[in-house]
């Protein structure tokens, strides 16, 4: 029952678990806002960021896992 050790171990684990989802989420929000504030390059950036998420999803679904 040593609480401090447990908390530290679990927060390190959480950081590891949510690292990628958080990064993807932030890039998606940037993409959503980008097309709203301008046209042209701002739109293109939005396509890149949100389209990139779709490509990542397809790659992960297609990838053969070792498990």
């Amino acid at each position: 029952m040593n609480r401090p050790t447990r908390l530290r171990a679990s927060s390190l684990g959480l950081r590891h678990i949510f690292r990628w989802p958080l990064l993807i989420g932030l890039l998606n929000v940037a993409g959503l806002v980008s097309a709203l504030v301008g046209d042209g390059w701002y739109d293109a950036l939005s396509w890149l960021l949100l389209g990139g998420t779709l490509i990542l999803m397809i790659v992960l679904l297609a990838k053969r896992s070792s498990d």
Partner: peptide, 21 residues
Amino acid sequence: GAVVYAPFMRKLAFGTVRKHR
């Protein structure tokens, strides 16, 4: 969903889709 996602992923890399189970 994000909260219950954490315990599933202790042993898995992000985005793993296990196809042979």
